[in-house]
């Protein structure tokens, strides 16, 4: 008994022995910590959108049946999107305010650009329907600017979907779309 106790406590080891000992502990600890960190990643990443969600269908919309002054709300990637057929008056109003004092400056033309960079058609505005404040869906043709008004917290958008008044910080986000034919588009 006595000799084991002596061995345990005395440890008259040379500093070389201690260095080796420290090295082992540090190496094992470091490798273990790296392993734990790497292991954590899958458990975090699993909450990201899955492959089926990411590959969610693109949405095709037929514009022929959409009358001027109307909009339809369609879903793309599970989110609502406004497709609005603007009247000439609405287009004019939108273009007139291109250089007004805007919270989030943008010209009407820049808000019509297709996903591939080509210019869009003034008659059809395609924007995401989520208010940039906290995500409610704004009401069609309401508010002072006759674009949209969000009933949740009073944000008002013009007929180009630009934020004009209220707590929302940004214009309604564009939805990436391209014309397939003159009267049909694909979103996504």
């Amino acid at each position: 008994m006595a000799e084991t106790t002596a061995n345990e406590t005395a440890a008259p080891a040379a500093s070389a022995g201690e260095t080796r000992r420290d090295f082992i502990f540090i190496a094992a600890g470091a490798v273990g910590a790296v392993g734990a960190a790497l292991t954590a990643w899958p458990f975090i990443d699993q909450m990201n959108p899955a492959a089926d969600t990411r590959a969610m269908a693109t949405t095709e919309v037929d514009l022929a049946s959409l009358q001027a002054g109307q909009q339809i709300v369609i879903t793309w990637q599970g989110k609502p999107v406004f497709v609005r057929h603007r009247t000439p008056a609405e287009i004019e109003a939108a273009q007139r305010d291109d250089y007004a004092a805007l919270k989030d400056p943008a010209t009407d033309a820049s808000r019509l650009v297709q996903a591939n960079g080509a210019a869009g058609k003034p008659a059809f505005l395609i924007v995401q329907a989520a208010c940039t404040h906290l995500g409610c869906i704004p009401t069609f043709a309401a508010g002072d600017y006759k674009g949209w008004m969000c009933a949740c917290h009073g944000s008002q958008y013009d007929t180009s979907g630009r934020i004009r008044r209220g707590p929302a910080p940004l214009n309604l986000a564009l939805a990436p779309y391209t014309y397939l034919t003159d009267t049909s588009i694909r979103i996504g």
Binding site: N7, E8, I24, A27, A28, G32, G35
Partner: peptide, 22 residues
Amino acid sequence: AFLLVLTFLVYLAYKQVWRGTK
């Protein structure tokens, strides 16, 4: 491969801790 390395290192550490303890 990683676990083998870790096993080896932990084994050394374990033996180190128990060195001199019968």
